[in-house]
């Protein structure tokens, strides 16, 4: 009886037993490896980035599959929630449609005028760029890094440096590109610095992220007078990004700190477009000076 009870308790306790004492050596070893990993990444990021590209290539198809049901559930919930707003939406859309009809006729008139003036000046326009649309499969939006993973890579002509747009505006650029997956660094990330200009005024500056919801417009000329509500667009300086892509609007200007709000809602990205702009390879690889 005693031995039976002893046997039962010993078997039942296996799962709840603490790990053996010697096993403290294992976590210590892992901690050392982890610290070394961080140091190695800081000293030379390229091997780690290469490893990351290989892993994201392998993992993104898995996440693309599992995120599909999550998207379906979210869509169902939002469609149910949207039912009660149908009437209000209908009134808003009718009004919007009326305004867009006016804009459409104005755009047609301006396009014809533009075409005529260009032909008069014999203006050589820049090459058009193409784009591919894709779904966001991983969103790292959080406290430390703002990036997205897309299920498109070099197989789809997506390469490092290309601009990524959501509905209306640029939201980031490709920083890592594998065969079937790529990583987008968002414009709000701490490490994002984009050459921009203020639409209309043509003042040039750098749009810098700080991991917040907005960005800071820096290095503007001293005589610049940015106005609230002015749109910020890419300048195309450096040849990395296409010019005139909208990014955000100025929302505050206090003590010389100009805050820019992204045009698109970066917290709810579902589909994005990768802009295929002919980029000089030497600029992307960083060997332009050689």
């Amino acid at each position: 009886m005693v031995s039976k009870t002893k046997k039962r308790s010993s078997t039942a306790n296996i799962l709840h037993m603490p790990l053996p004492l010697y096993s403290k050596a294992i976590p210590s070893l892992f901690l050392i490896i982890a610290v070394l990993g961080i140091f190695l990444h800081r000293i030379n990021a390229s091997p780690i980035e290469h490893l990351r590209v290989v892993f994201t290539d392998l993992l993104v198809p898995v996440f693309a599959t599992v995120s599909e049901p999550a998207k379906e559930v979210a869509n169902k919930v939002s469609s149910v929630a949207g039912m009660r707003d149908l009437r209000v939406d209908n009134i808003r859309l009718t009004e919007e449609n009326r305004r867009l009809q006016q804009w459409y006729s104005a755009a047609l008139r301006l396009e014809a005028e533009n075409r005529g003036l260009k032909s008069l000046l014999n203006f050589k326009s820049e090459a058009d760029y193409s784009f591919i649309s894709t779904r966001v499969v991983v969103d790292t939006g959080g406290s430390f890094i703002k990036s997205l993973l897309l299920p498109v890579g070099t197989d789809d002509n997506v390469v490092k440096g290309q601009a990524v747009m959501a509905k209306e505006a640029m939201i980031g650029r490709i920083v890592e590109s594998g065969q079937t997956a790529s990583r987008v660094l968002m414009v709000t990330d701490l490490n994002s610095h984009i050459p921009v200009l203020i639409e209309g005024s043509r003042y040039k500056g750098i749009l810098a992220g700080y991991n917040g919801d907005t960005m800071f417009l820096e290095h503007l000329p001293l005589d610049s007078q940015p106005e609230l509500g002015a749109r910020i667009i890419t300048s195309g300086d450096g040849g990395l990004l296409p010019p005139n892509l909208p990014i955000g609007t100025i929302v505050s200007n206090q003590d010389g700190k100009i805050q820019v709000q992204p045009i698109d809602n970066l917290g709810q990205l579902e589909y994005v477009r990768v802009i295929d702009f002919s980029i000089d390879d030497s600029i992307v690889s960083g060997d332009i000076m050689q």
């Binding site: 961080i38 996440f63 790292t140």
Partner: peptide, 16 residues
């Protein structure tokens, strides 16, 4: 690797 964090930073935290 998925989040694009510095290598092993989360591993360091979780093992700790």
């Amino acid at each position: 690797l998925i989040m694009g964090f510095p290598m092993a930073i989360t591993a360091l935290l979780l093992v700790s």
